[in-house]
Nucleic acid binder design. Sequence first.
DNA 1: CTATTAAATCGAAATCATTTCTATTTAGAA
DNA 2: TTCTAAATAGAAATGATTTCGATTTAATAG
Lengths: 139, 139
Amino acid sequence: MNFDFPQLLKSLQLKVTPQRLAILEIMRIADTYLSPEEVQEQVQQRANGKVGLPTIYRNLEELSAQGVISKILHPNRQLYYYFCANRDHHHHFVCLACRTVQDLHDCGCAEMASQIDGQVEFQIMQALGTCRRCCTQNA
Amino acid sequence: MNFDFPQLLKSLQLKVTPQRLAILEIMRIADTYLSPEEVQEQVQQRANGKVGLPTIYRNLEELSAQGVISKILHPNRQLYYYFCANRDHHHHFVCLACRTVQDLHDCGCAEMASQIDGQVEFQIMQALGTCRRCCTQNA
DNA sequence: CTATTAAATCGAAATCATTTCTATTTAGAA
DNA sequence: TTCTAAATAGAAATGATTTCGATTTAATAG
Ligand SMILES: [Mn+2]
Ligand SMILES: [Mn+2]
Ligand SMILES: [Zn+2]
Ligand SMILES: [Zn+2]
């Protein structure tokens, strides 16, 4: 992954704004998935500058659409995003207790897609549950 | 699948109400996924009796939680449900154009779960796109 | 450096799918 | 038939997300 965010944004034809850089930096250092509101809080804490919530929503969605960050599918149906440095094709296991995310390689995506009679546009694949650490603590 | 819905409801410890039976019947005969509002419309058309929207929402969610119907993950983030008679473990390919659903067997769920360091509670897996029929028509 | 402009941001307000609430009804059991 | 927990109805609330119009700004060219 390219951690030169200004460069990254340029390559995506997006203007390099302080708001975007702040959002990207917060996502990069977060070790759990975050809601848009949480991203806003952290951006304000760190950068000490205000960023409007619509701006957060717009950018998180844009970055997600471009594959820079990934969207977490949560049972509560609200939006959460996670920055993953791993650029290889893979999926995630999400701990609902501590909000951490594990990478999952070895998926059956390709063979799954091969049995589809049509044009695949999205492939959703994600596991949810309780990570070992959280299992142990609450046992 | 047990198409004796009264029996099915009893086995799930749910009361056999006309509303539930109407919802189940509509879901069974639908050949596409449906939104709660669409279920309501069709229930009213067919049964000629009113069913409140909260009742529809509550029951669709309950039946989905019990595995009787499946929830469709749609990019617009609204709720959709689909009744699938196939009781074997499998997943779905959803056509966003005509709303039809294809069964997908041969998933890598098990091996995927095996690499997870924790307790899996949900496994989300779904493909979205355009079915061959729709591809052909719009070509 | 300045001018230009499309893109981006802002805050306020709107949206609307979904949920909650409470009174009433009803299925199922005794 | 009586009883009661479960289910339903309709009205109202909810609140995460989106939209809007005005303003600012990044990027480009001269
Ligand atoms: Mn990852
Ligand atoms: Mn199916
Ligand atoms: Zn955990
Ligand atoms: Zn189709």
